[in-house]
Amino acid sequence: MDETIIEFNNVSFTYEAEENNPEKPAVKNVNLKINRGEFIAVLGHNGSGKSTLAKLTNAILVPDEGKVTVAGMDTSDESKVYDIRRKVGMVFQNPDNQIVSTIVEDDVAFGPENLGIPPEEIRRRVDEALKCVEMYDFRLYEPHRLSGGQKQRVAIAGILAMRTDCIVLDESTAMLDPRGRKEVMDTIRRLNREHGITVVFITHFMDEAVEADRVVVMNDSRIFMDGTPYEVFADIKKIKKIGLDVPQAAELANELRESGISIPENILTSEECVQAVLEVVNADNRG
């Protein structure tokens, strides 16, 4: 299963200078290998280069230096651009700005229609994709009658209907309320587990990053940390130094540990934290 699907090879990218923005690399010397079936969260605060990283994966942006390959195809090869986008789909931040049609099922059909797929096959894919994100009952709705989370699920279905191997979500939960965020998280986690779709999840919510297999932290245009959530969040001081938060559960556990209470190191979710605290309390009562 350790097949690489997206590979960054010493990639740098700089946006053109604008009036009040001096030229500064958005991404600098990035090396990253994303394996098929992985669920990667990319963390970082604003301007850390995480969105640029996302746009480099499907040839919206092409690196100035280095090379990005998707399933062996170089993103700078213009003849391959649409083949690459068939492999790597992207869901954006604002749900309203990526829905093209006035009816949900027509919007999901947009991608396959662009690929020139025959109508019966499109119909099948659209129904399948909508069932996958649990939006099949809403297939005849107008998008403006849906909630933010539902719109993002429609956008995900639109990518699924193109049968991409990998979905990149560029801060797709940033504009949603907690319920919408949970809907989207549950959906992509299921897609990753059950359908083996590679997920690159760009976010600044730590609690979402915890659910990934692997966390990549970006800081100042470079990769700052790369590892499992436990590895990355183990060093709370290092994360805080670059101005990022750590998951609340991890922070609480850390403070308890520092004040002399014996709590295990690898705590990231609130369930784990509750469990550990209960064990300590019960042990105290018994002793």
């Binding site: 919206i60 649409y82 309203d96 947009f110």
Partner: peptide, 23 residues
Amino acid sequence: RAYDLAFAMECRCYTGGDNRTSM
């Protein structure tokens, strides 16, 4: 919005070409 939408459409392989099909 127009700018975002254009990006999103390109990501979904819209080329404005004639070989589009229709569901």
